[in-house]
Design a binder for these strands. Structure first.
Lengths: 134, 134
DNA sequence: CTACTTGCAAAAAATTTGCTGCTAT
DNA sequence: ATAGCAGCAAATTTTTTGCAAGTAG
């Protein structure tokens, strides 16, 4: 266990942070890699993974570990809820005010030290629905 | 696309369902495999994956796609909330009544056809906390 | 300077799949 | 009978890691 390394703001880290914050979508690591390669063709997928991990550990971005096979990342570090399409796996924000009181309820009902909570809605997005209303 | 195969209750499928329902924990596919091998040594990991998938598609069990690297499965098919330990990744039930009204709010605020929602609390479990209170 | 970081490639971890023979219905 | 299923092994997919060279502070 290393004792708090000093974080360096490398070009790669900065561009990863910038590009992610520009997006309102919630890309996977590989989607970020594809985007980043356009600006920085030699960047490696390993670097993307390592930095997304580090930035979310620092609280500068969020790792969203909701459904789907791949992890997704969110440039908005504030707590907010998400909605995911069951068909295409797209993840979007949903403007429901997170209920912090819920965490107090959880504290009373469990022996865990409750840190946070996250709610994900699951549904069918308009474009998937249009594609096959079945 | 295949048109609704008839589901067979094989020995393997049955024992997977039984053993999962016995547990109050939420094992990963591999954890299930380890448990099942004790009763059925020749069962394969592929079979475990295939059946957990099929059973959750049928709504007989739940796939819980929350944080952590592996998917977890829950023999309790009723909707309920979970709490996950940030350190050991254990997932347990939490006795908070799911708020179905939230889904109506979501319907009003988004263009998705909202099907369900899930809330996950994140914290530190008592045993991890005891192990290192830092 | 020097620890942290990168690109690259290889490895590991997690899950899915093709196939052949078996079995529930 | 026969469509679906199991076991096995190989393939994919997703993520992590070791290492030598580069770089921010």
């Amino acid at each position: 266990m290393k004792t708090h390394a000093v974080l360096r703001m490398t070009k790669q880290r900065q561009i990863i942070l910038e590009e992610l914050c520009k997006l309102k979508s919630h890309p996977t690591a590989d989607e970020m890699y594809q985007i980043l390669r356009r600006k920085m063709p030699r960047i490696s997928l390993g670097t993307v993974y390592r930095n997304l991990e580090i930035l979310s550990d620092c609280g500068m971005i969020q790792k969203i570990d909701v459904g789907g096979t791949q992890k997704r990342f969110d440039g908005n570090a504030d707590i907010h809820y998400h909605i995911r399409c069951l068909r295409c796996n797209k993840v979007e924000d949903i403007e429901i005010e997170p209920d912090k009181k819920l965490e107090n309820t959880a504290r009373q009902l469990s022996k865990y030290t409750v840190l946070r909570h996250h709610t994900e809605f699951i549904g069918i997005c308009p474009s998937c629905l249009a594609a096959s209303p079945a």
